[in-house]
Design a protein around this nucleic acid. Structure first.
Lengths: 221, 221
DNA sequence: TTATAAACAGACCGGTTGTCCTGTTTTGTC
DNA sequence: GACAAAACAGGACAACCGGTCTGTTTATAA
């Protein structure tokens, strides 16, 4: 009865990749639901079924863990939720609409709004540490650029001629971010549809504006 | 040498209102810059020059302090920054434009983006506590309603006939919130102007759309 | 097998946090 | 001036946090 080797002696199996994934899963969920500062490493260890030694082996500090969550998980979430669907869509407008509707539908099905992972962490960590801010800003930049590129592709196809790609991309990202912020606070996803409709009314009427302008040019000749 | 009455004996002056104001000032600034969880009461006490007993007398818990900051300071900031200027403006569009430009100019002058007080706290606290969420949601609601009412006033003056007040208000609030989020993360206020320009292009061309529609009606006759 | 490093376990520690508590001083009221 | 309540001072404390440390087990390669 000198040394008690845990429950069963000698039944451990090293699985560094699996353990790392488990930790990231738990951290991503907890950061999303409770935020960075409100998530203690003790809670994460318990939720992931991981000891302190193992956690420290993979992520030396809490900051390193958060940085991994941002770079691997949050960036991937933005890529999967926004960038890929927009790129795959027939047009920027269709892409934006499909994302808004998909997210709204998902929120309504869940009945609970956790908010945008990127914006959640961005608000809490952007001013806390330059490394956090840089990582988060990079994701925002990629997100916005993907939409701007899509507008550019539309324009090369003869559409959206009087839409400024960068400006529209900023508007789309900002509208979604802000709508998710309101949806999270009010716990009501309806604001997403309101914003989408208002956004589309403006964008679609931009086409009308262009037609009228072209019409005037023809008249002028 | 039994009891040592601080530095100078008997030179205290009670100033409950002033002390309370000082605490709220410091808390508002710290919550804005570092967030709720990252702001310790010890830091706030030191910054405000207040002892633990005095702080506890006015704000029994940290939550009570945060609730006071939200209800008294954040709500007032939204009122002063957004609601009052929009109500005072000649039109909704002018009001929104003036607010965006005023904030952008202020940020450029400061050279630093701290973000929107309401959104900062909303992201961190909405899911943390129902009382927080309710208080924050109320501010969002008042903000949005003020803009919607202004659109309604425009419509009674014969303008913005095909603009949905609630939808446009949601879009304006969301765009600003999201733009501030990006500006904070990138530490660049330019995105505010991008969003404003994109927003105005959409909104102003909505007028064009209506004119065209009216024109068609006349042609039809 | 044996050497070697990676992977993991688990206790430990200094510092911090929010809150509470007791006591003292000031203020208002009769 | 007496008295009660409000305002304030400041220490104490238990819980918790993140990080470190030592030691053990597992995998890898020679």
């Amino acid at each position: 009865m000198t040394a008690r080797p845990k429950a069963q002696p000698g039944k451990r199996t090293n699985d560094p990749e699996g353990l790392r994934k488990r930790v990231l899963d738990v951290a991503e969920a907890s950061f999303q639901a409770r935020g960075y500062h409100a998530s203690s490493l003790g809670d994460l260890m318990a939720a992931a079924g991981v000891t302190g030694g193992a956690l420290h082996h993979h992520f030396p500090t809490k900051k390193a863990l958060a940085l991994a969550v941002i770079e691997e998980r949050v960036a991937a979430a933005v890529e999967a939720t926004w960038i890929a669907p927009v790129q795959a869509a027939g047009s920027t407008r269709e892409g934006v609409r499909s994302v808004f509707e998909a997210v709204a539908a998902e929120l309504e099905q869940q009945g609970f709004v956790r908010g945008c992972p990127l914006n959640n962490l961005a608000h809490e960590l952007s001013l806390a540490d330059p490394d956090f801010r840089t990582a988060l800003a990079g994701i925002f930049s990629a997100w916005r650029q993907a939409i701007a590129d899509k507008v550019g592709a539309d324009q090369q196809a003869g559409r959206e001629q009087d839409t400024d790609p960068q400006r529209f991309a900023a508007l789309a990202v900002a509208t979604y971010s802000g709508a998710m912020s309101m949806a999270k606070t009010t716990q009501d996803s309806a604001v997403l549809r309101d914003c989408l409709n208002a956004l589309e009314q403006g964008v679609s009427s931009a086409r009308a504006k262009r037609r009228r302008r072209v019409l005037r040019q023809y008249k002028a000749f």
